[in-house]
């Protein structure tokens, strides 16, 4: 596997952190149903996409 495929932008990590913490805080405040794992997984899937891999691979 090419190393370039595995490089992750710091900005993307920061955005993931912010979105994860915001989601956690919302769910803690509003006592939402326990779907937090799926919700966090979705956040990461939205931030790291197939296009991201192809661009790096190209």
């Amino acid at each position: 596997m090419a190393d370039s495929e595995m490089q992750i932008d710091d900005k993307a990590i920061k955005k993931i952190q912010d979105r994860v913490l915001r989601e956690e805080m919302n769910q803690l405040h509003y006592q939402r149903p326990p779907s937090i794992i799926q919700d966090l997984q979705k956040i990461i899937e939205e931030e790291i996409t197939e296009a991201d891999i192809s661009e790096k691979a190209d």
Binding site: I8, I13, Q17, I44
Partner: peptide, 21 residues
């Protein structure tokens, strides 16, 4: 393989974010 590559990158991104937190 493309699926696995994407999942590996997502796993790594999750790990980075977790370590920062």
């Amino acid at each position: 393989v493309a699926e696995a590559t994407l999942a590996r990158k997502r796993m790594k991104a999750t790990e980075h974010a977790r370590r920062n937190i």
